[in-house]
Design a binder for these strands. Structure first.
Lengths: 373, 373
DNA sequence: CTTTCCCATTGAATCGTTTGAAAGATGATG
DNA sequence: CATCATCTTTCAAACGATTCAATGGGAAAG
């Protein structure tokens, strides 16, 4: 422990007592002035000024631990994410950060890396830090229901973003997946496509099923035939780029089996990227030979080549709505409010870019092939 | 404030005193047992067992504020990033998280959104939270030197990742940009390219100049001519996708002026994505008509269409090295250690994918055009 | 002259934990 | 019996801030 010239150890920082000593007033007064507490109304203007000057000169910063201990408030909101490298998370996080910015709260972000053990460790730490609220960004989530249900035991207002629990008291904010699936198929169908391949999400994922429900609903409405050979399913490993790889290999397999589809609906954007790769490797170009539609609208969808048509989830908004609900619950003082287990379903939005187009009126596929020979 | 059946307010949680009362031992003993302090050697085995049982039953979690206040340690490392949506950050963050995982430290991540005001606000908060170390992920950084120099005033061990200060005492961990630039040009040159267009980084960015130095060094070595019309520069706004947009428009301009180049070296991957888009819109395909080389190897480079050849920065390793250095400095007890201002330069690595190829031996450009008519 | 009110500041308790010193036991040794 | 060592547990003082109640002065009101 190094000793500075002023005799203090290098670890200790300027404290309230230091400012008190230096300014000649008591710690109470310092605290009152610096926090602009109501009674500071009675403190002489000259005193205030003097105290502020000294505090600044000594570079005084109140210790968050001392303060939080006494006030019994941490002024933090825990944010648990499951994979920071998932671009889906990123925008939600931004929404959360931006909304929190205007408040007195600081986000405390932890990344569970899709591992249950980590999830529990970090959860425990967040609770030790007495977070006043908890936002769980549950994008691609195989943590079992019980683990999440545990959350409410902790008497910390909690909101789930991007996912929904089939039951249980936790509130959630997510896109209307059913409607999204519906919109997606509607888009392809109205472009004239009738031979459509599908890569649906993993069956274990509840949200994935909802999305598929929407697809089925539209298909039923217009009487679209969906042959089994063109409907495949992601297994959903938790690896980072797994949906790209799976999208690619599933598409390859379908192409080898029967390449007759003119459009492909992917579970999400990453899967769509993989599909585009597979199509290209097979000699098909997008969208001329086959349209590809994604889901999510991750930031890279617009940069991709060709830029990807997709169903957008309002991710930033989801983040800020989650924050709004948490702040609300905090203000309610932890009371079990009526709308607590509420589910906010936000409308998805279809974004048409380059990867989808009306079905080729001329025999474009043939022409292209000749051109290549 | 809701009152529970046991008479405690709903805000207060089980505390050490609760466990003490319930178990019949004193708070001291509880603390000693639960922390497995050295003297716990003397505590009767039966007592230990009993205390642990009670603690578990009451779901006791030590309050981080009380503990940190007393122990004068926060067990947190602040991580300041400048734009979480930048995929460059993401991998570094993962490296940091993974390395921290095996330690007693918790990362405290904040995102300054490229704004100075935010940077300072968050920095103040991190200091109030008494972070024991600080990692600044300074990817795309226009915060002025003074602001960063301030950091060392705070007597908190600090390491910069991904950027370097021309002077000053802060240590940094980053890729060898000069070598990266050298490798990049070498790659294109050895593929046979002689007419190469360059999009260099913003001049204000120190690291960008280093990279450019490497390019120039190789060019000088082999005597490559670099006509001014094919050398452009990013302005470097802090917007999220600005390098894509700029890469695209700069490439467009060059193409309109003189499309004779057969390869393009971009400042980073995002710029490269923009360049590919511009080339395609101009009717050039990559790599058949023009090779494109990026820098960074963001996760999407491999998924892009065509997959992007690039110079990889070992981002995850940069993160873990930064953690290692911070932990080291913390162990040194904040002493000014000899290697404190040290700069770790990691070697870049060329990753060849689809976007670069040997120069076209046949007159492919012409053939393609005819094919399209 | 006492009471009341306002002004300006402070004393002292408190938040939940850790920890060095001390205090009770018990048994062994001189 | 005093002394000492060993074991087991507790006391009480921090850590740094906030806040309620209290202080003492001065002026105005009764």
């Amino acid at each position: 422990m190094a000793i500075r010239k002023d005799g203090k150890t290098s670890f200790s920082r300027t404290t309230l007592a230091d400012v008190a000593r230096e300014s000649g007033f008591s710690p109470s007064t310092i605290s009152i002035v610096l926090n602009e507490a109501p009674i500071s109304r009675y403190v002489a203007a000259k005193t205030k000024e003097h105290i502020r000057e000294v505090a600044k000169r000594l570079d005084y910063r109140p210790d968050a631990f001392g303060r939080s201990l006494r006030k019994r408030r941490s002024h933090t909101i825990g944010v648990m994410i499951f994979d920071i490298s998932d671009p889906f998370c990123t925008l939600i996080l931004q929404g959360i950060e931006k909304s929190l910015h205007s408040t007195e709260f600081l986000p405390f972000i932890v990344d569970a890396h899709n591992q249950r053990e980590q999830f529990e460790r970090y959860l425990a730490m967040l609770l030790e830090y007495r977070v006043e609220g908890l936002i769980v960004v549950a994008n691609w989530l195989f943590i079992d229901i019980e683990t999440l249900s545990e959350l409410e035991r902790h008497r910390v207002p909690t909101v789930l973003v991007g996912s929904e629990m089939r039951s249980g008291p936790l509130g959630s904010v997510l896109v209307n997946n059913e409607q999204g699936g519906y919109l997606a198929l509607q888009h392809l169908y109205s472009l004239g496509h009738r031979k459509i391949a599908f890569i649906r999400g993993p069956r274990q994922l509840w949200d994935s099923s909802r999305r598929w429900d929407g697809v089925l609903r539209y298909a039923a409405e217009v009487g679209l035939r969906m042959p089994k050979k063109w409907v495949v399913e992601l297994t959903g490993s938790s690896e980072s780029n797994s949906s790209f790889d799976e999208g690619r290999s599933l598409t390859s397999t379908m192409l080898q089996h029967d390449p007759g589809f003119t459009a492909l609906l992917a579970f999400d954007d990453l899967t769509a990227f993989g599909a585009v790769r597979a199509l290209r490797d097979f000699g098909r170009s997008v969208p001329e030979d086959c349209s590809v539609l994604g889901f999510d609208d991750v930031p890279y969808a617009a940069l991709f080549n060709p830029s990807l048509s997709t169903v957008r989830q309002p991710m930033e908004r989801m983040g800020s709505i989650a924050v709004g609900r948490i702040l609300n619950e905090i203000q309610q003082g932890g009371e079990v409010t009526p709308g607590k287990g509420r589910v906010d379903l936000l409308p998805p939005e279809l974004v048409q870019r380059e990867s989808t187009a009306a079905i080729h009126p001329t025999g474009r596929i043939l022409a292209r092939k000749i051109g290549k020979i």
